[in-house]
Design a protein around this nucleic acid. Structure first.
Lengths: 213, 213
DNA sequence: TAGATTGTTAATCGATTAACAATC
DNA sequence: TAGATTGTTAATCGATTAACAATC
């Protein structure tokens, strides 16, 4: 891994999946797995698994496989998840509230450290033990919080300015739930989650009754 | 488009984005757009836009561009969204409730026609005007509803059996929010949305203070 | 007509998979 | 040792981008 090396995004997505799968193996007390075991649980071709892992170093033992605990640790480090990762959440509506209370985040070492909204009736209230703050205070608040990841769960029409404020606060990694293409400076990483898009792709695949399997 | 032709998934994902963008153009009263206009709003290379669209037919006019309304209609038809698409939602927890009330679904012609849960304290209650039904009745209920798309918003440990029940009910297109790889028969289309995975990919991209832009 | 922009072909790029020597 | 499985190279596959003739 040379200095500025960035792994392919598909590889990173799979690494995250391997991590979840390894957490499962750990809790079952399994201590060694082969790439084929991972294939079975992660739904990823065994050759692909080995290729992905070998990009970051030889974590396995020829003829034996991978040590579950060690591999879990290695991947955690690659994804910078060996320590808790602080996250800002903007938008305390239905979706934002659901995300704030999503238990899997905590399990995988993410922690939502602040929730912001611009609705005066929400500011000051609490969700899941976190008090909702005014969006206007976001930049200021993050000076002490130092979060590097932000989630946008605001209406589409507010997403762009929310993103800009996050960037201003030094949050250069953004998970965007609004169906809008954000225009942000170089060096900002954005991942979009678009429910409508997902359903649309499924809709395309609907077969009429007469179609063969 | 030959009979059993299936477009590449990346193309379908982009088509859904074009649809959203075109809805925007329509509401602004724009009536013609070029592939470069779409590039600017959808964040997709203009050549890619033309390639995607030409897979389904020549919707544009050389030297002129694409008629907004006509293109919107064409894409709607391709994605089977020209009429309302019925959707079953399983899981009436925080995430499920947020999805049930998600306004963009309605805008883009999706309608959640039933919500299921296995918690006796929830069954019979209502969310967003839809009454929550027992999961045990899913197959039976869908005989009259005839939905072809289902959303899984249950805990990971319930996801597999939920998926199997959906398939039994003839719902072969599944949007899965549980961080589990579903094992289902051939011919079932699954799309996974994994918040933790998304955040993990972002986490990888975090730069340390000293790193150059 | 001159300018603009499509649809499509060809070139490039990148990701996935298969195969196998190395080796535990 | 014999069997298993890695790490890696080479082959395949597919997706993206550039370029341009056709043409409105």
């Amino acid at each position: 891994m040379p200095d500025g090396y960035k792994a392919p995004v598909p590889t990173l997505e799979r690494l995250a999946t391997y991590l979840t799968v390894l957490t499962g193996f750990k809790s079952k007390g399994v201590d060694t797995v082969s790439s084929i075991d991972i294939e079975q649980h992660a739904g990823v071709n065994a050759a692909q698994v080995r290729k992905d892992l070998s990009l970051f170093g030889g974590f396995g033992k020829t003829g034996v496989g991978y040590n579950v605990t060690a591999l879990h640790e290695h991947i955690s480090k690659i994804l910078k998840l060996e320590h808790t990762q602080r996250v800002l959440l903007v938008g305390a509506g239905n979706l934002g509230s659901a995300l704030a209370g999503y238990p899997a985040l905590r399990t995988e070492n993410f922690k939502i450290v602040a929730v912001f909204d611009n609705n005066p009736r929400k500011i000051g209230a609490e969700i899941w033990g976190i008090s909702i703050k005014d969006i206007a205070s976001l930049v200021d608040e993050n000076r002490s919080l130092g979060a590097k990841i932000g989630i946008i769960a605001v209406p589409a029409s507010w997403a762009q300015q929310t993103a800009e404020r996050l960037v201003e606060a030094g949050v250069l990694n953004i998970l965007n739930f609004a169906p809008v293409v954000l225009r942000l400076p170089e060096g900002v990483t954005v991942r979009n989650v678009d429910f409508v898009q997902e359903l649309a792709v499924l809709s395309y695949h609907i077969r009429s009754e007469s179609e063969p399997g």
